[in-house]
Design a protein around this nucleic acid. Structure first.
Lengths: 193, 193
DNA sequence: ATATATACTTAACCTACATTAAGTTTTTGG
DNA sequence: CCAAAAACTTAATGTAGGTTAAGTATATAT
């Protein structure tokens, strides 16, 4: 399969020899998801980090009234996962599914651990990845705590312009933390303000 | 100085030889902070990760009305930092100050990078640290998006029982995302509900 | 092509939480 | 030990955003 996109992405942070590359790719698993299909089913909890080759995934939580709350979108070239479940290897609280037909690459946690032993440079790669994720969560939290819905929406548009046209509005509403009805009203309100 | 607490904390995740330990400690800087004192002043932006030996720090953002929004508390034994500024080495958007007289240990980013070269095991250590932080941010976001204020408060009490008695109520209000007035009313409301 | 599900809109009404403001208690610093 | 600042409380009033519900538009699948 075509792992080039992933290898190029990794090459931005660490450089791998030919052998390291092929050892790495030998550990990869490919999965195709139909729109609405879940990444992780049932007891299948030990999956490691997931890279989106093509398509669009999201992670979300469910509240006790059955409403979904989007934690993250992952278009092509992004990583996604439920970190609590990945660390603890217990069933997580996040659901991950495909918003479009998608192709993803993933690692078993045990293979990832072997990879760290064999090619320690990957510790650096995933450290950098994790640090970037932290920066973006700190940012998101700040905006949840301190901005009104309209500014959170504008922030989203600024940060993910390419997602605006391909995401259903209700998904964006969920991400910024309002109901679809309210987002609709807000966007169709007289001009601005 | 007494770096034992930090070394023990690190030993939970990686094991270091005597030399590695002393190389590491040679890079550390110690700083004492008075209550209300800021960790990072003015243009002093290139500070790396900060470990709290003693006391209590917090990071927060300021909104345009001058209100503070707490992103994280860091009691003794915890790490704290503004990840965006650490990565970009540009002034960040978070403020970090001491809620009690405190002692912290910190690294310059350039020293941290030398450390990664000399003792690659630290890549693993900070990767694990970062992954744990991600899990906790995913959790916090979930609770901001899907729980009402009372349940966020209860979640906070469950997660940080030791902080409840030593934190001013208004700091907890800020962390869970409500005004101090509302938290006060909520806690003094007839019994429960 | 048509049926059905899903997405979006609009509007009336509702509520969790914010704002303002005044008063009380506790902590801090000199 | 005292004055001033900071923290907490209470209450009246305001509002951003939720809920419910009904209708319209747009996909999706067969």
């Amino acid at each position: 399969m075509d792992y080039n996109q992933l290898l190029q992405h990794i090459a931005k942070h660490i450089s791998l020899s030919q052998e390291e590359q092929s050892y790495f790719t030998s550990l990869l698993n490919l999965k195709k998801l139909k729109k609405k299909q879940f990444l992780v089913q049932e007891e299948d909890i030990s999956r490691g980090p997931v890279f989106v080759l093509e398509g669009l995934l999201r992670s979300y939580s469910l509240d006790k009234n059955g409403f979904e709350h989007v934690i993250q979108f992952a278009p092509s070239g992004w990583w996604i996962g439920d970190m609590k479940s990945l660390i603890s290897q217990k069933p997580g609280t996040l659901y991950i599914d495909a918003l479009e037909d998608s192709t993803v690459i993933w690692l078993w946690k045990s293979d990832l651990e072997k990879l760290y032993e064999e090619v320690p440079k990957f510790e650096r790669f995933f450290r950098i990845l994790a640090e970037n994720a932290i920066a973006s969560y700190q940012n998101r939290l700040t905006s949840m705590l301190s901005l009104p819905a309209r500014e959170r929406y504008e922030g989203f548009c600024g940060l993910y312009p390419s997602l605006i046209d391909c995401l259903p509005q209700k998904q964006i509403a969920s991400y910024i933390g309002v109901t679809p009805e309210f987002l609709s009203k807000m966007l169709n309100a007289p001009a601005n303000k």
